[in-house]
Design a protein around this nucleic acid. Structure first.
Length: 358
DNA sequence: AATACGGGGCG
DNA sequence: CGCCCAGTATT
């Protein structure tokens, strides 16, 4: 295609793509156009750094190389593979979506934006990523990197974490997209944010967009992007009962709409404040579990504060030898041999406790 | 429009 | 200790 006169090509896109060609990292999900693998990588990388997600990705696609293998798995195995990554609804939704693709689309990943966007766990960002990377469809990805690059480049003070802000940035990102090279453009924009236009102390002296950057011109690089504000971090108090009898223990599957859904843990007594054992002992829930048996507390392990994004968990584990396990067991509870506890997906907190005991 | 949902890394 | 990370779903 010759342009006798510049038909106003997207210069920003061109600069980003040129920068990308020499600075891009070699990453396994960039070696393929298989929508399945791209999908897996995008879900894993949601709110997750490349360095943290890489090993999970490799293990995941090795164990589940295609949609059908994932669809055919038991959810507990998917959760186990996800253990430690956080945001566990990603794993549940991935599994559910795999079953939907397997059934509704005969195992063939849908190739249009609306169908992809409709799958569980796939929002605007991930749908655009899959469609542009795998199918070359002209949809702009807007992730944390893109917000940062655009807020700085255009000096935008609109908070990025409000619906209005998201709309504004999505429109802008779409207007910058080079539709003929959507996938390349999106990769370039995000990689640029990840490596060059970094959150703290970017080196603007080597930035190819320095001459066009409003934030740099105004000395406001470190003030952008703007976020509306953070929600309060509230404390929770978890008292776990690690019951033991004859080389076995009791695990309970977490259900309901709370953290760590579908992960396993020891029977839990959550309290509104920190409580000593002699108070716990009189709790009706404790009596329901151990009221009918002799027991002896072997150890008490107070864990360091466990910090989540919006919760601080103060946890204490009581290792208790019991004469008999509770009957009936708590809902969703099961008796497990000590050696098989590691087969179950558990929270990082419980994993840390198990490691500490040795 | 807010809030919930994990865990790790970095200054 | 606060902020950020290839966000999405629920309320």
């Amino acid at each position: 295609m010759e342009e006798g006169k510049q038909s106003l090509p997207n210069e920003i896109s061109a600069v980003l793509i040129r920068w990308y060609e020499t600075h891009r990292r070699e990453l396994p999900w960039r070696e393929t156009t298989d929508p399945y693998r791209i999908w897996i990588s995008e879900i894993i990388l949601q709110q997750t750094r490349v360095a943290q997600g890489l090993e999970y990705y490799l293990r995941f696609v090795e164990r589940f190389p295609d949609v059908r293998s994932l669809a055919g798995a038991h959810e507990d195995e998917v959760m186990k593979l996800w253990q430690g990554l956080g945001y566990y609804s990603r794993a549940r939704n991935l599994h559910a979506a795999a079953r939907e693709v397997s059934g509704k689309y005969a195992g063939l990943f849908p190739a249009d934006y609306a169908s992809v966007r409709a799958l569980k766990g796939i929002g605007d960002y991930t749908a655009a990523a899959i469609c542009s990377f795998a199918f070359g469809l002209p949809h702009a990805t807007v992730d944390g990197n893109v917000y940062r690059v655009l807020a700085r480049l255009y000096g935008l003070e609109t908070p990025i974490d409000t619906p209005a802000g998201k709309r504004e940035f999505a429109v802008l990102a779409g207007s910058l997209l080079d539709p003929a090279r959507a996938g390349l453009h999106n990769q370039a924009m995000m990689e640029f944010g990840a490596l060059q236009c970094v959150p703290r102390s970017p080196d603007c002296t080597v930035c190819p967009l320095a001459g066009r950057c409003a934030a740099l011109r105004q000395g406001r690089v470190d003030e952008l992007p703007v976020k509306a504000g953070r929600t309060e971090v509230k404390p929770r108090y978890f008292n776990y009962l690690h019951l033991r009898n004859g080389g076995r223990t009791v695990l309970v599957k977490r259900t309901g709409s709370d953290i760590w859904r579908n992960l396993y843990e020891f029977p839990l007594l959550e309290t509104g404040t920190p409580v000593a054992f002699d108070v716990l002992r009189d709790d009706p829930r404790f009596r329901a579990l151990l009221g009918g048996t002799e027991y002896a507390v072997l150890h008490r392990v107070a864990m360091p504060k466990h910090q989540l994004s919006h919760r601080t968990i103060h946890a204490c584990f009581y290792e208790i030898e019991v004469e008999a396990f509770p009957h009936p067991l708590p809902p969703d509870g099961c008796v497990v041999a000590d050696g098989e506890v590691s087969d179950y997906a558990v929270s990082r907190l419980t994993e840390l406790y198990l490691q500490r005991r040795g």
